[in-house]
Design a binder for these strands. Structure first.
Lengths: 145, 145
DNA sequence: CACTAAATAAGAATAATTCTTATAAAAGAA
DNA sequence: TTCTTTTATAAGAATTATTCTTATTTAGTG
């Protein structure tokens, strides 16, 4: 799978992936993807832009937004939803969920295959076809406790 | 519990609740709460305002935002997080999760006590104290199928 | 009824994101 | 390679969602 490949060698297969999807490989796209893949936090577009202007001084914030949107539409990255106004992003990898610290707003990934494999309650079946589970668990992280 | 009371008779106990919390009972607050309690969708602040200007022609959008913020801080209502930019709101009731139709963006409540009662995977315990689970399941609703 | 603190309306301000347009640069063809 | 076509970018304007400022109004209390 594409996603699996990304995990083992995120950057080197990136150009390949773009071509498969019909996307041009631009320095901006490479750097934005690289920066996001190298992030262990879940940066906002703004934050990524701040990090990237050092290596690409002319990079516009709009390009970061546009590029993240493109990647997200193709499933290369995910938007992480929080209560906050700014969207957070991450490179796609094995399906996972998020812990969010209510104090410092840090977002932590965790996997829960047991949840992924559990069927929704029976009564939801009549409501439509819902499958993509996204769990957010709020609390206080270790550092803020 | 307060929340339980709300379910059985949402409006009539509302004034009582405000007083307990030290909030003044204003026509705006009553109407905003009433309108939200009467909603079976999960309206945005903007949408609520549109509905309310008919009965309260001078109501400002700012007041809707401010009031929803106040109610939310007190736990009377919840902000529902979606990928979209606008926040959605609902009156608090028994803890529940959300189905979101990717096509029409409709938000549907469902309960899953089994999930609520399940402990998080063991390895999350070292990361902090996380308890409030909020599950969103994406898919296609019955009408859009 | 009068007082005081809190809430509101109105519109300005801010923050996040998207759009417009002219320029630049990938990818493919010659 | 060079040319051509098409897509992507930068810059800044525009839009959207939300919050702030300030003057005015009003709920709660004595």
């Amino acid at each position: 799978m594409v996603i699996e490949k990304m995990q083992t060698d995120k950057i080197s297969t990136f150009q390949q992936l773009c071509r498969e999807k019909g996307l041009r490989v631009t320095p901006q796209r490479i750097e934005i993807f690289r920066a996001l893949a190298a992030s262990d936090d879940h940066p906002t577009a703004e934050k990524l832009h701040q990090r990237l202007v050092e290596s690409l001084p002319t990079l516009s914030l709009d390009t970061v937004y546009r590029t993240l949107g493109t990647f997200s539409a193709l499933g290369l990255i995910n938007k992480v939803e929080t209560i906050e106004s700014q969207a957070h992003f991450e490179v796609s990898h094995a399906h996972h969920h998020h812990l969010i610290c209510e104090r410092c707003k840090k977002i932590i990934d965790f996997e829960w295959p047991q949840l992924d494999d559990t069927d929704l309650p029976h009564e939801t079946q009549s409501l439509g076809r819902f499958d993509k589970k996204s769990l957010i668990v709020y609390g206080i992280c270790r550092h803020c406790l």
